[in-house]
């Protein structure tokens, strides 16, 4: 115990390995997605390549069965995945956090009703719910998929927010803050949201990954973004017939999907370590 460091003014550790790796993976995805707005190796509809070409200098990841460049489609798929993940989480977070906070403040009866409703909604499989919404809308589009996934996420976020907010609201510092004259709205903004944020943000990132996977599943089933909007799920589905003859077509979008989801989870993990001052020092 000779080197016991009791000083409290040690600079806080601001970085973690998970944060760096996660940030790199997600960042790569974002860069690629933005890049596709201006440039792709080929026109996504250009079918000038040979059928199911193996990777070469001309087509780094080969071509699909219509001779279109595969790398181009995967890059555009990154854009689709990001839009779905961000959109669904944004919808889920705004509805979910609002409902959750309201439930935490609600009277006993209203709170019970909300909790039961949320439990029923969560018991409903997300993918099934999304399929129903997409099927019910006139045209299978990316937006109906985002809305459906966003609603499913909002139920999960609302339940989590409700429990977290209730726990925070029981703390002495809330009462102390109230006795000094802070309004309930002030308490939410100053104390509740910052204190539930570390847990919520991790959950958001987790939901982001799940939304990306759910969208891929919907596209795989033909319920996601219609062609020519490339989606990793649809690429996987199209490549499934040739998985033995041209394995790259199945492996490449799979890797892209896994990389984004893992990257997002690592990013969330690192974010929690950095965002929570009580965790910073003990590392």
């Amino acid at each position: 115990m000779t080197s016991l460091d009791l000083s409290t003014d040690r600079p806080a550790r601001r970085h973690s390995l998970s944060l760096s790796i996660g940030l790199a993976l997600v960042g790569l995805n974002v860069v690629v997605a933005i890049l596709t707005l201006f440039w792709t190796p080929y026109d996504p509809l250009n079918a000038s390549g040979g059928r199911l070409e193996a990777p070469s200098w001309l087509h780094w990841v080969g071509t699909d069965r219509l001779g279109r460049d595969y790398l181009t489609q995967i890059m555009i798929g990154a854009r689709t995945a990001l839009i779905v993940g961000t959109g669904a989480v944004a919808i889920g977070a705004s509805i979910g956090v609002t409902l959750g906070i309201l439930a935490a403040f609600a009277t006993r009866l209203l709170d019970d009703v909300m909790a039961a409703t949320l439990d029923i909604l969560i018991a409903f499989p997300t993918l099934l719910l999304a399929m129903l919404v997409v099927a019910a809308s006139d045209s299978a589009s990316l937006w109906s998929a985002i809305l459906a996934l966003g609603l499913a996420i909002s139920a999960i976020v609302a339940r989590l927010t409700r429990i977290l907010a209730k726990r925070v609201l029981r703390q002495d510092y809330i009462i102390a803050s109230r006795t000094s004259g802070t309004s309930w709205l002030g308490v939410v903004a100053w104390h509740v949201l910052p204190n539930i944020w570390p847990t919520l943000s991790v959950n958001f990132a987790l939901q982001f990954g799940l939304a990306v996977i759910a969208e891929a599943s919907l596209s795989y089933l033909g319920l996601g973004a219609p062609p020519p909007n490339a989606s990793w799920g649809r690429l996987l589905q199209e490549a499934q017939g040739t998985v033995y003859t041209a394995p790259v077509g199945s492996i490449a979008p799979g890797i892209a999907l896994v990389a984004l989801v893992i990257g997002m989870n690592l990013f969330a993990d690192g974010l929690r370590d950095v965002g929570d001052p009580t965790r910073r020092r003990s590392r």
Binding site: Y173, I175, A176, P198
Partner: peptide, 14 residues
């Protein structure tokens, strides 16, 4: 009010 438990009486993240 001043409370009994000084740890919970302060917001840990502020």
């Amino acid at each position: 009010v001043v409370f009994q438990e000084p740890l919970t009486a302060l917001d840990p993240l502020m």
